[in-house]
Design a protein around this nucleic acid. Sequence first.
DNA 1: TAGATATTTAGATGGTAATCTAATTATATG
DNA 2: CATATAATTAGATTACCATCTAAATATCTA
Lengths: 97, 97
Amino acid sequence: MNETYQQESLFSAIADIQRRKILHLLQAGEMSVSEINQHFDFSGATLSHHLSILKKADLVRVRRQGQHRIYTLNMSAVEQLMLFMNKLFGAKEDEKQ
Amino acid sequence: MNETYQQESLFSAIADIQRRKILHLLQAGEMSVSEINQHFDFSGATLSHHLSILKKADLVRVRRQGQHRIYTLNMSAVEQLMLFMNKLFGAKEDEKQ
DNA sequence: TAGATATTTAGATGGTAATCTAATTATATG
DNA sequence: CATATAATTAGATTACCATCTAAATATCTA
């Protein structure tokens, strides 16, 4: 079980509670940066930093819309993460493999 | 979705690649500290440190056997973690909920 | 009981990560 | 075009974390 860089970046990405909150927010639907920011106390720069880490892990995708950037949750990265977790722990993972 | 201290400690525990390797090793069966240590380069003190973090997260359990301490993977904590991940990402989690 | 082995604890160090303010880039609009 | 708004980037600071060596604790055995 050698981990790829991609897997490592996934685990680092979800290690922070603020980033997990961001991911959970996006689960309900896409959001602009300022909309996301309404749910947090920290500065916009800090949010930008967290978003860049989530982007690098490919957990979120961005598109531009005027002045705004719209972030969406990338479910295929989420699925990849869950698959890897199942392998890691040797879980059954509903008999699919 | 407010996280408990327990959940926070689970995510911190799996954030480190060495601890993920330990968990994966234990997935094959219980092991003493020195057996685990054969798979790593770092010092026994460092291993002990990692094991204590896994213990605090309740991902592993320990019992004494003479001079040895035998570590086992606690699958119910693993399951709890997977359930929480599913909630976090809004995944289907094989229709159980 | 003395010494060997197994493991943990204490304390120190270097590196990384989260956060901040200020500056920069990009876009929209009067 | 000038200014306002949205978001990122740069640079600094602080806190935390992985690791180390040395010391302590616990158990076994000669």
